[in-house]
Amino acid sequence: DVEPGKFYKGVVTRIEKYGAFINLNEQVRGLLRPRDMISLRAENLNVGDEIIVQAIDVRPEKREIDFKYIP
């Protein structure tokens, strides 16, 4: 289970104008929005990159997770 405030290692699987999709594993995926990329620009991300993200909002009923990148 993903808990708000905890840090996780994930892999960038898709990049859109509104953010990057980060997979923690095959069943868990969330969104890293540009406003939550402190000191990281979306254009510096590539599909396949491994990054550490913090879960900031977890909505299990919608199967949605928002992440924040903190260097």
Rank of each mutant, 00 (worst) to 15 (best):
G48V: 01
D1W: 15
L24A: 01
A55V: 15
P4N: 08
E3L: 13
L40C: 09
K17G: 07
V28S: 05
G48M: 02
R33M: 06
Y69L: 07
L32D: 03
G5D: 03
D36P: 04
A42H: 14
A42L: 15
I15T: 02
K68F: 08
D36L: 07
I51Y: 01
I65G: 03
D57S: 15
V28T: 11
R59A: 03
M37A: 06
L45H: 04
L32Y: 03
Q54S: 04
A42C: 13
I56A: 06
L45N: 00
Q27N: 14
R63H: 13
L40K: 05
Q27T: 15
R59W: 05
E26M: 11
R33E: 04
S39V: 10
V12A: 00
T13P: 00
K6P: 02
R35V: 10
R59D: 06
R29K: 10
V58D: 01
K9C: 15
I52A: 02
L40Q: 06
I15H: 02
D1F: 15
L45S: 00
E64C: 12
P34V: 15
E3M: 14
R41L: 12
P71S: 13
D1S: 14
L32F: 04
D36E: 06
P34D: 11
Q54H: 03
D1A: 14
E61K: 08
F67A: 02
V2S: 03
P4Y: 07
G48E: 01
I22H: 00
D49A: 06
K9L: 11
G10P: 00
I65N: 04
V53F: 03
L32S: 02
I56D: 01
K62T: 11
K62M: 11
V2I: 15
N46L: 10
K17T: 12
K9E: 04
Q54T: 05
F7N: 05
E3P: 08
K6I: 06
Y18D: 05
R14V: 07
Y18E: 08
V11M: 07
E3I: 15
V53P: 00
F21L: 10
D36N: 14
F21G: 01
E3N: 06
G48I: 01
G48K: 01
R29Q: 15
N23G: 06
Y8P: 00
I22P: 00
V28E: 05
E61D: 14
V2K: 02
N44D: 15
I70T: 09
D57I: 10
A20H: 04
F7Q: 03
R35H: 11
E64F: 13
R29T: 13
G48P: 00
I52S: 03
E43A: 12
I15M: 05
N23Q: 13
K6W: 05
A20V: 15
V11Y: 12
P4K: 15
D1G: 13
G5R: 03
N44P: 08
I65P: 04
I51G: 00
K6M: 09
L32H: 03
E3Q: 14
F7P: 02
V2H: 04
G10T: 00
L31G: 02
E50F: 15
R29I: 14
L31K: 05
R41W: 11
E64I: 11
Y69E: 11
V12H: 00
L24H: 01
G10C: 07
K68H: 05
Y8Q: 00
V2W: 05
A20Y: 13
G48L: 03
K68V: 09
F67C: 08
D66C: 12
R14M: 06
V2F: 09
L40N: 06
K68Q: 08
N44C: 15
P4G: 05
V12G: 00
M37G: 06
E26Q: 12
N46Y: 11
L32M: 05
L45A: 01
Y18F: 12
Y8K: 00
I56E: 02
D36I: 08
V12M: 01
D1R: 13
R59T: 04
V53W: 02
K6H: 10
F7I: 08
G5Q: 04
I56R: 05
V2R: 02
G10L: 05
A55G: 01
F7A: 03
E61H: 12
D66W: 13
V12S: 00
F21M: 07
Q54L: 15
V12F: 01
I56H: 06
I70L: 11
I51K: 00
E61M: 08
L40W: 08
R14W: 06
E43M: 13
E50K: 12
Y69N: 02
R35D: 10
E16H: 09
Q27S: 13
D66Y: 14
E64Q: 14
I70E: 09
V2P: 05
I15V: 10
T13G: 04
R41H: 10
E61P: 06
L45W: 03
S39C: 15
N46D: 07
R63V: 07
A55M: 04
A42T: 13
E16G: 14
R14S: 10
R29A: 11
G30D: 02
K9P: 03
I22A: 01
G10K: 01
A20W: 13
G30S: 15
P4H: 06
I15C: 05
D1V: 14
N25F: 08
E3C: 12
F21R: 02
E26T: 12
D57C: 14
I56L: 12
Q54A: 04
I65Y: 09
P4T: 12
I51L: 09
V11W: 12
K62S: 10
R35G: 12
E16R: 07
F7E: 02
E3V: 15
N25Q: 05
V47T: 04
V12W: 01
I38L: 12
T13D: 04
K17R: 12
T13L: 04
V58F: 06
Y69F: 11
R41P: 09
Y69Q: 07
N23W: 11
N44R: 12
V47A: 03
D36T: 04
F67W: 09
K9H: 09
L31I: 10
S39E: 13
K62R: 12
Y18C: 08
G30A: 05
P60K: 11
Y69H: 06
K68G: 11
S39P: 15
K68W: 06
V58I: 09
D36H: 12
